[in-house]
Design a protein around this nucleic acid. Structure first.
Lengths: 189, 189
DNA sequence: GTCTATATTCGGATAGAC
DNA sequence: GTCTATCCGAATATAGAC
């Protein structure tokens, strides 16, 4: 792995753990083992490096989600698999976390990967819901986009509840509740 | 309003806008118009002041939520009123925001009001769901605690989606989706 | 490409006068 | 109770040597 990659990877980790405002260039240098002059040779500064790190995290998150959402099974099963998949709950979402930071939200370069990730994710889930409805598996009803937003929000909010409680339990309860509500949309009910 | 109150109120605002790590004693002094010596006379330092501010925000949030959850209407209506009530969506949740900050989570004094707020809120919503079930208004099914966690998570996650999109729209979609799912739990369906 | 030196401002206080 | 002075390290770089 080359110098740029080590810098990006360390920045991804630090942004996840400490957020943008809590991540310093010095901490990135120490974690990556890359010197100061070297870091400023490869990147213009902290915002530039953070943008690269966020783009990479966004890409990884989409790949992970696609494994369940594009996997085998009925529409309900694919969404339930996505919601219930194993996660490092107490670490939170490496993308969603950025939404809290005013400096990220204020900088279009930094906000773009965050916005695009959630647009992609809710669109993807809405598409699966539409497939399920077309197949007669899921009831028609509320707009698929609204259900997809609600499901995405349960995951993001679940992280918040878990960190507040310093326990993964609230996250898992929230996800179970969401799956139960989605199950009641099955036509066989 | 006395000096302590002005300090606490300014700290509440800054914690909401910028988070714990992004809030400096100097910024608090400037916003409150209170001098440095005075601030350190009334509070031992930033953590002490932040703890006071968070306790007050937690109390205010419970009062606000109780207006809908303890208000008139059926169980469904009370929860739908709570979910759909007007909010400053793009500012986020002043309590939920703290869950992202590692220094808040690591300090029991700071985390306690955050944890207690969500425990109270999910318990209160679960209670309303139980009332609705006892009255024959809502179907039995998933544990009320799980549904309550999911609904609470939708609100918290809705804030995340809204800030990511720099638009209140995803929040409102998520809430509408959640209300639609809850509506399908009505026995009259 | 990488290193070390230097610069400026901020963060988060403590000390002591008034 | 409030004010001003002072302190020390961290944040975020820039400059120039190697």
């Amino acid at each position: 792995m080359d110098t740029s990659d080590r810098l990006i990877e360390s920045t991804q980790e630090l942004l996840w753990e400490r957020g943008y405002v809590g991540t310093s260039p010095k901490a990135i240098q120490q974690r990556s083992g890359v010197g100061q002059g070297s870091m400023y040779h490869h990147f213009r500064g902290k915002p530039d490096l953070a943008a690269a790190a966020l783009r990479r995290s966004a890409e990884q998150l989409r790949e992970l989600a696609e494994r369940q959402l594009g996997g085998p099974g009925t529409a309900f099963e694919r969404i339930a698999n996505y919601l219930g998949r194993e996660r490092e709950v107490l670490r939170g979402c490496r993308i969603g976390r950025m939404a809290q930071d005013p400096e990220v939200i204020a900088d279009p370069e930094l906000r773009a990967p965050v916005e695009e990730t959630f647009e992609w994710l809710t669109g993807r889930i809405a598409g699966v819901i539409e497939e399920g409805r077309a197949a007669g598996e899921l009831r028609p009803g509320a707009p698929a986009a609204e259900l997809a937003r609600a499901l995405t929000a349960v995951v993001q909010g679940g992280y918040v509840l878990a960190r507040a409680a310093d326990s993964a339990e609230p996250f898992h309860q929230a996800v179970q509740g969401a799956i139960a509500l989605l199950r009641s949309q099955l036509t066989e009910d």
